[in-house]
Every structure is written in structure tokens, then in C-alpha cells.
């Protein structure tokens, strides 16, 4: 009987969710590893001196292109600076850009999504078309165009990466608002005679926010990668200390002989993105977002 099978199916799905929630030990090990990694990255961003004692601005051609192991942990680049030190000092730029770009994208995107979802009608249509237009370009390409147009400063990089994440946030928020707006308690607020502003900020927004928060964690990872890509292509800010993307590109000509210059920044980026998205998964389960 189809109905029975359907019921059995729901049961099995319920079971799977249950397993996910009760948390198998592999998951919690990964979670703790992610937390530990992000703690290190955060420490590097806040007080790099604790992790790397030597000055990243001092060039020493005599120590150029030393392999990992002897003397330096991760080897040195072509100007003799320690790759490990540069990675530690590059963390700040990565985190600042990741966090600020995501904050910008989330704010702008969520506001657009909220307005579109709540007002509907032609406003929704105009915002929707605008978002569609942004979405026509892949995120990296969009950020690239914007960064190229604005010129390479840290602020512009943040703007470029942030704008690239706007469409995602706008869509998620709009969808959530549409769902929550249909809930009875919103109707109840309306029947109580509350103002639209109160209805939106007290009753709709708090109930629509969770998926955007989850998305933000994932988005931080994406933003770090996009920012690194732009830096790699030379569209990042010109700074004395190279960020992770610049370090990647510094190592590019030496890839055949001195593989460590590019490889370690690559691994650092990958680990950071994985850690952030695992934390996002955990947060999603905690906030019970479907």
C-alpha cells in the first residue's frame, strides 16, 4: 500500500535526522578540529606576534627559497621571508575581508530581501530583476569586475566581495519572509493593529533570520576565497605584507622547484573554508533550519 510505504519512508527519514542530531562522534571530532583551527586563525589575526616572532617586512635575500624543515617551519619565499610568518600575518587581512564583506552582503541582501518579500508587487519585481542581473555573473567574476572598476584598496575589495554575496542573502531572506509572513502570528499582529514596522521587526524578522545567519558562516569562507582570488590576480590592496592570495601568486613562478610557497597558503585557505562551513553545518543543526 502506497500510504504505508510513504509512512515507512517518513520514518526512515526521521531516523536519519535523528542520527544527525544525536551527533556521531566523527562529527563532533570534526567540529572540535574546526573550532581549534578557527581559534588559531583568529589569534593570528588579532595578535600575530604570538605565533610568529620574526618581522614579516624584513627582506633577507640570503635566506631566499629555503625548503620547509631546516630553520623555517614552512620554508621561505623568494625574498627570504618565512612562509609561516607571512601566513600568520596574512590572517588578519583574510578575516577582515571575510567578515566585513559578509556583513555588508548580509545587511544589503537581507534588507533587499525583506523589502521584496514583505511589500511584494512591483517592488518585489524590481528588486527581483536587479538580483537576477547580479546573479547572471558568477560571484568571482562579479567581484572581479567591481574590483577592477573601483581600483584596488582594501575597502574596495570588501565592497566587491560583499556585493557578490548580496544576491544569495537577498534570495534566502525573501523566501523566509514569504514563509513567515503567511504564519498566523503575523496575521495576529496585524489584527492587533500593530504598525507595519513593528510587525516586520518584532514578528517577521526574528523568525526569518536563522537561515541567513547560517548562510553567513558559509559566506565567510566563500568571501575569503574570492578575496584571495582577486589578490592572486593582482586586484588586491598593495600592502607591504602579502595576504594569502598574493602569497599564492608570489609562489606561482617557483612552483616547479619551490612548491612550498604556493602550497601552504592553498592548504591554509582550504582548511579555513572547510572549518567555517563545518561550523555553519553545526549552527544550522542548532538553529534547526531545514
Amino acid at each position: 500500500m502506497a500510504a504505508v510505504d510513504a509512512a515507512a519512508f517518513t520514518e526512515v527519514r526521521g531516523l536519519r535526522r535523528q542520527l544527525r542530531r544525536t551527533g556521531v562522534s566523527v562529527n563532533s571530532a570534526l567540529l572540535y578540529a574546526s573550532l581549534a583551527w578557527m581559534a588559531i586563525v583568529a589569534l593570528a589575526a588579532l595578535i600575530p606576534g604570538v605565533l610568529a616572532t620574526d618581522d614579516p617586512t624584513v627582506l633577507d635575500p640570503a635566506r631566499a627559497l629555503q625548503p620547509p624543515g631546516a630553520g623555517t617551519l614552512l620554508g621561505t619565499e623568494q625574498y627570504g621571508r618565512s612562509v609561516a610568518t607571512l601566513l600568520v600575518h596574512g590572517a588578519r587581512s583574510a578575516m577582515v575581508i571575510g567578515l566585513l564583506a559578509t556583513t555588508f552582503g548580509m545587511l544589503v541582501g537581507s534588507v533587499l530581501g525583506l523589502i521584496a518579500g514583505y511589500l511584494g508587487g512591483w517592488v518585489d519585481m524590481v528588486i527581483g530583476r536587479f538580483i537576477d542581473m547580479l546573479m547572471c555573473f558568477p560571484g568571482v567574476l562579479l567581484a572581479l569586475i567591481i574590483a577592477a572598476a573601483l581600483g584596488s584598496t582594501t575597502t574596495n575589495l570588501i565592497l566587491a566581495v560583499g556585493i557578490a554575496t548580496v544576491p544569495g542573502f537577498a534570495r534566502v531572506m525573501r523566501g523566509q519572509v514569504l514563509t513567515v509572513r503567511g504564519h498566523l502570528y503575523v496575521e495576529a499582529a496585524r489584527s492587533n493593529g500593530f504598525s507595519p514596522a513593528r510587525t516586520v521587526f518584532r514578528h517577521i524578522l526574528p523568525n526569518a533570520l536563522a537561515p541567513s545567519v547560517v548562510m553567513a558562516t558559509v559566506s565567510i569562507g566563500v568571501a575569503i576565497v574570492v578575496a584571495a582570488s582577486l589578490s592572486f590576480l593582482g586586484l588586491g590592496p598593495r600592502t607591504e605584507v602579502p595576504d594569502w592570495g598574493q602569497l599564492l601568486s608570489l609562489g606561482q613562478p617557483y612552483l616547479a622547484n619551490s612548491w612550498w610557497i604556493s602550497t601552504f597558503p592553498g592548504i591554509t585557505l582550504t582548511l579555513t573554508v572547510i572549518a567555517v562551513s563545518l561550523l555553519g553545518d553545526w549552527l544550522r543543526d542548532r538553529l534547526d533550519v531545514e
Binding site: M1, A2, A3, V4, A6, A7
Partner: peptide
């Protein structure tokens, strides 16, 4: 099930695929 034992649920619409 579905031969000698059959069941009808409360929500007819969601019991059908």
C-alpha cells in the same frame, strides 16, 4: 500489510503520493 491488514490515515491528501 496491504493484503490482510490495511490502514487508512487521517490526512487523505498527504497519504497519497
Amino acid at each position: 500489510r496491504g493484503r490482510e491488514l490495511a490502514m487508512v490515515f487521517q490526512e487523505p491528501l498527504s497519504s497519497l503520493d
